[in-house]
Measured scan of single mutants.
Amino acid sequence: KELVSALYDYQEKSPREVTMKKGDILTLLNSTNKDWWKVEVNGRQGFVPAAYVKKL
């Protein structure tokens, strides 16, 4: 599985998104959309802005 690192804090703005803190390591589930990537963090799945994470 592919991992990404959070470059910035992000506070979810809808139920489809997830909150992350800078430095968090997230499991990348889907990166086909260039703007929003689906990740899993702390057992929750949702979307984060692609520009806020980088692949490890």
Rank of each mutant, 00 (worst) to 15 (best):
E12W: 06
L26M: 14
K34S: 13
V18F: 12
L56R: 05
L26Q: 00
I25K: 06
S14M: 07
Y52T: 08
W36G: 01
L56E: 10
E17P: 05
K21D: 04
K54D: 10
G46K: 02
K34D: 11
V48F: 00
T19Q: 04
L28R: 00
E2Q: 14
Q45W: 08
D9V: 02
Y8M: 12
G23K: 03
N42P: 05
K34Y: 08
L26E: 00
L3A: 06
V4Y: 15
T19K: 04
T27R: 11
Y52R: 05
Q45H: 08
P15H: 11
A6N: 01
K55Y: 12
S14Q: 08
V41P: 00
T27Q: 11
N30R: 06
L7Q: 07
A6I: 02
W36M: 06
T27N: 08
A51K: 14
R44S: 06
S14W: 06
E12I: 06
T32A: 12
D24Y: 04
E17T: 09
V39F: 01
V48L: 02
S5N: 07
L26S: 03
E2F: 12
N33D: 15
K1C: 15
S5T: 15
S31D: 15
A50V: 06
R16Y: 14
W37A: 04
S14R: 09
D35G: 09
L28M: 04
L26G: 10
K55T: 10
T27K: 12
D24F: 04
R16C: 15
E40Y: 06
F47C: 13
W36K: 02
I25R: 06
T27P: 13
S31H: 08
V4T: 05
S31A: 13
E2D: 11
Y8A: 12
T32K: 12
V4H: 06
W37S: 03
N30F: 07
F47D: 04
L3M: 12
D9E: 05
E2R: 12
N30L: 09
K34T: 11
V4S: 05
A50Q: 05
W37Q: 02
S5L: 15
V39W: 00
T32C: 15
L3H: 09
D35N: 13
V53Q: 00
K54N: 09
K34P: 14
S14C: 11
V4D: 01
Y10F: 07
V48C: 04
